[in-house]
Deep mutational scan, measured.
Amino acid sequence: SADYSSLTVVQLKDLLTKRNLSVGGLKNEWVQRLIKDDEES
Score class of each variant (00 low, 15 high):
residue 36 K to M: 12
residue 25 G to K: 01
residue 5 S to H: 14
residue 23 V to R: 07
residue 30 W to A: 05
residue 34 L to A: 01
residue 10 V to C: 14
residue 37 D to M: 07
residue 32 Q to L: 08
residue 33 R to K: 06
residue 20 N to E: 08
residue 1 S to L: 14
residue 38 D to S: 04
residue 36 K to P: 03
residue 27 K to G: 06
residue 22 S to D: 12
residue 35 I to N: 06
residue 16 L to H: 02
residue 23 V to G: 07
residue 3 D to L: 07
residue 25 G to T: 02
residue 28 N to H: 14
residue 37 D to Q: 11
residue 26 L to N: 15
residue 19 R to K: 06
residue 34 L to D: 03
residue 27 K to V: 13
residue 22 S to V: 07
residue 5 S to A: 14
residue 13 K to A: 07
residue 27 K to M: 09
residue 19 R to V: 04
residue 37 D to A: 12
residue 27 K to R: 08
residue 38 D to A: 05
residue 38 D to F: 06
residue 5 S to L: 11
residue 13 K to D: 04
residue 2 A to S: 11
residue 29 E to F: 00
residue 27 K to D: 07
residue 25 G to R: 00
residue 33 R to Y: 00
residue 7 L to K: 04
residue 12 L to P: 01
residue 41 S to M: 13
residue 12 L to T: 01
residue 36 K to C: 12
residue 30 W to P: 03
residue 14 D to F: 01
residue 14 D to M: 05
residue 10 V to W: 04
residue 2 A to E: 12
residue 38 D to T: 02
residue 10 V to Q: 15
residue 1 S to N: 13
residue 2 A to W: 11
residue 30 W to N: 05
residue 17 T to E: 14
residue 18 K to W: 01
residue 33 R to L: 08
residue 23 V to I: 12
residue 5 S to P: 08
residue 30 W to H: 06
residue 20 N to K: 11
residue 27 K to F: 10
residue 25 G to H: 01
residue 20 N to Q: 11
residue 32 Q to K: 11
residue 20 N to H: 11
residue 20 N to G: 15
residue 2 A to Q: 14
residue 18 K to T: 09
residue 15 L to H: 04
residue 18 K to L: 09
residue 16 L to Y: 00
residue 21 L to Y: 00
residue 8 T to G: 08
residue 34 L to M: 03
residue 21 L to H: 02
residue 18 K to Q: 11
residue 18 K to H: 09
residue 20 N to L: 07
residue 4 Y to D: 04
residue 12 L to M: 05
residue 27 K to S: 07
residue 14 D to Q: 08
residue 33 R to N: 06
residue 27 K to A: 08
residue 33 R to H: 05
residue 28 N to V: 09
residue 7 L to C: 12
residue 35 I to H: 08
residue 30 W to D: 05
residue 39 E to C: 09
residue 2 A to N: 13
residue 10 V to N: 14
residue 26 L to S: 15
residue 29 E to I: 02
residue 23 V to Q: 13
residue 40 E to D: 13
residue 41 S to L: 13
residue 40 E to S: 12
residue 19 R to F: 01
residue 1 S to W: 12
residue 28 N to C: 12
residue 36 K to G: 07
residue 25 G to C: 06
residue 41 S to G: 11
residue 34 L to N: 00
residue 15 L to G: 02
residue 13 K to P: 01
residue 15 L to W: 02
residue 13 K to H: 10
residue 5 S to M: 13
residue 2 A to M: 15
residue 25 G to V: 00
residue 27 K to N: 06
residue 27 K to C: 10
residue 30 W to L: 15
residue 18 K to A: 11
residue 20 N to F: 05
residue 9 V to R: 07
residue 14 D to P: 01
residue 30 W to Y: 07
residue 9 V to Y: 04
residue 34 L to G: 01
residue 23 V to P: 07
residue 4 Y to A: 05
residue 31 V to R: 00
residue 21 L to S: 03
residue 13 K to G: 05
residue 5 S to Y: 11
residue 28 N to E: 15
residue 32 Q to C: 12
residue 22 S to A: 11
residue 31 V to K: 00
residue 41 S to Q: 14
residue 39 E to Y: 12
residue 30 W to G: 04
residue 14 D to E: 13
residue 30 W to Q: 10
residue 8 T to S: 15
residue 15 L to P: 01
residue 10 V to F: 03
residue 14 D to T: 06
residue 34 L to K: 00
residue 34 L to V: 02
residue 15 L to V: 05
residue 28 N to D: 15
residue 34 L to I: 05
residue 13 K to F: 08
residue 37 D to H: 13
residue 9 V to G: 10
residue 24 G to Y: 02
residue 19 R to G: 06
residue 31 V to Y: 04
residue 9 V to C: 14
residue 11 Q to P: 01
residue 24 G to E: 15
residue 3 D to G: 06
residue 6 S to K: 14
residue 33 R to C: 07
residue 35 I to G: 04
residue 2 A to T: 15
residue 1 S to G: 14
residue 7 L to Q: 07
residue 38 D to K: 02
residue 17 T to Q: 14
residue 41 S to H: 14
residue 3 D to R: 08
residue 24 G to L: 10
residue 24 G to R: 08
residue 31 V to D: 04
residue 7 L to W: 02
residue 16 L to S: 02
residue 12 L to E: 02
residue 12 L to W: 00
residue 35 I to A: 07
residue 5 S to Q: 12
residue 41 S to N: 14
residue 9 V to N: 12
residue 32 Q to F: 00
residue 9 V to S: 14
residue 24 G to W: 00
residue 25 G to Q: 02
residue 3 D to Q: 07
residue 30 W to M: 15
residue 17 T to L: 15
residue 36 K to H: 10
residue 5 S to I: 10
residue 4 Y to I: 03
residue 12 L to N: 01
residue 31 V to E: 06
residue 30 W to S: 04
residue 1 S to Q: 13
residue 6 S to H: 11
residue 24 G to K: 13
residue 2 A to I: 15
residue 7 L to V: 02
residue 23 V to M: 11
residue 2 A to K: 13
residue 13 K to I: 15
residue 22 S to C: 08
residue 1 S to R: 13
residue 10 V to H: 12
residue 34 L to S: 02
residue 21 L to N: 03
residue 8 T to M: 02
residue 10 V to T: 14
residue 26 L to H: 15
residue 36 K to D: 13
residue 35 I to Q: 10
residue 7 L to S: 03
residue 9 V to I: 13
residue 8 T to Y: 00
residue 34 L to R: 00
residue 26 L to E: 15
residue 30 W to K: 06
residue 28 N to Q: 10
residue 35 I to M: 12
residue 35 I to S: 06
residue 41 S to Y: 10
residue 5 S to V: 09
residue 40 E to N: 12
residue 35 I to D: 04
residue 32 Q to M: 07
residue 1 S to K: 14
residue 40 E to P: 06
residue 18 K to D: 10
residue 8 T to Q: 05
residue 38 D to M: 05
residue 19 R to N: 05
residue 24 G to I: 14
residue 9 V to T: 13
residue 34 L to Q: 00
residue 41 S to K: 15
residue 28 N to F: 11
residue 37 D to W: 15
residue 36 K to L: 11
residue 10 V to S: 15
residue 7 L to G: 04
residue 25 G to M: 01
residue 13 K to L: 15
residue 14 D to R: 06
residue 11 Q to A: 09
residue 31 V to N: 02
residue 4 Y to V: 03
residue 31 V to G: 03
residue 8 T to A: 05
residue 12 L to H: 00
residue 26 L to M: 12
residue 25 G to F: 02
residue 31 V to Q: 03
residue 17 T to D: 09
residue 7 L to T: 03
residue 16 L to W: 00
